[in-house]
């Protein structure tokens, strides 16, 4: 479980996060949703330690990650896996080297063990026979899969995904979403996904935090979201014609 406590952040005097608090439970897919530019990525970066929040702190299963000591931070870092928006695969390394990279850096495993683990993870994300391909030879969906494999290769306890289905077609999006959900349940990890895709919300949103202009306005599950009473969230959800039709059919 990850707890976010009163996080605020600003860039050069411009505040982008206002006192955000939330809890992300283990074994479920937690979503942070909201329109572009509302600070979702900044919040995620504060949670994983890429940005230092101005105020507030984050705990990982009770361990203080923001102000804890250095060794504790290093320990927690080893348990974090992150999928970046474009995959963020290392251009100069092939698929196998990319997935193996965290093992090289974080563990002292022998090579054959590392290879086994890499192949296991690649199979888990339904990629086979691509070990020697370079990132530039992969499609968008495949890059995301490799990114997921790299994020889970070191038995991560916490998985973060920033817009996992941006730039993908609807069908591939759903496959990636489901893959994230399956992995979350299978490995019993805490997963946090940033998205602005309503499909993902309805498909995999066990817990949803809605952000608007740097503030957290609503939390709940995807069963509750249709009946939320927050105007900003309604505008966000029903910007989509399909969702509007669904609401009209319901009432």
């Amino acid at each position: 479980m990850i707890e976010v406590n009163h996080i605020s952040h600003s860039f050069e005097g411009k505040q982008v996060l206002f006192d955000i608090s939330s809890r992300f439970e283990k074994g479920q897919t937690n979503l942070i949703i909201g329109a572009s530019g509302t600070g979702k990525s900044v919040l995620l970066k504060c949670i994983v330690g890429l940005l230092q929040p101005d105020e507030g702190y984050v705990t990982y299963d009770g361990r203080d990650f923001t102000s804890g000591d250095r060794n504790l931070k290093i320990d927690i870092r080893r348990e974090i896996g992150m999928l970046f928006q474009g995959g963020a695969l290392f251009d100069s390394k092939n698929v196998e080297e990319n997935v193996m990279f965290p093992l090289n850096i974080l563990t002292k495993m022998p090579l054959d063990e590392k290879l086994d683990r890499v192949n296991f993870c690649l199979q888990r994300v339904d990629l086979e026979n691509v070990n020697k391909k370079m990132p530039s030879e992969l499609s968008g969906g495949m890059k995301k899969r490799v990114g997921i494999a790299r994020a889970i290769v070191n038995n991560s306890q916490y998985l973060f995904c920033d817009e996992p289905n941006s730039g993908l077609d609807p069908q591939t999006s759903i496959t990636i979403d489901n893959l994230i959900k399956e992995i979350t349940i299978e490995f019993d990890i805490t997963t946090v996904v940033v998205t602005h895709d309503m499909n993902s919300v309805m498909e995999i949103g066990d817990y949803i935090a809605f952000m608007f202009e740097g503030r957290l306005l609503w939390e709940g599950s995807n069963d509750q979201i249709i009946d939320c009473n927050v105007q900003e969230l309604e505008n966000f959800i029903f910007a989509n014609k399909l969702m509007r039709t669904m609401r009209n059919m319901k009432s």
């Binding site: 290093i74 290392f90 965290p102 850096i105």
Partner: peptide
């Protein structure tokens, strides 16, 4: 620069490098 804008540098930092 490419590594920065495609978040490869962030990916390294998340791994504690």
């Amino acid at each position: 620069g490419t590594m920065r804008i495609t978040e490869q540098i962030d990916a390294l930092e998340v791994m504690g490098i």
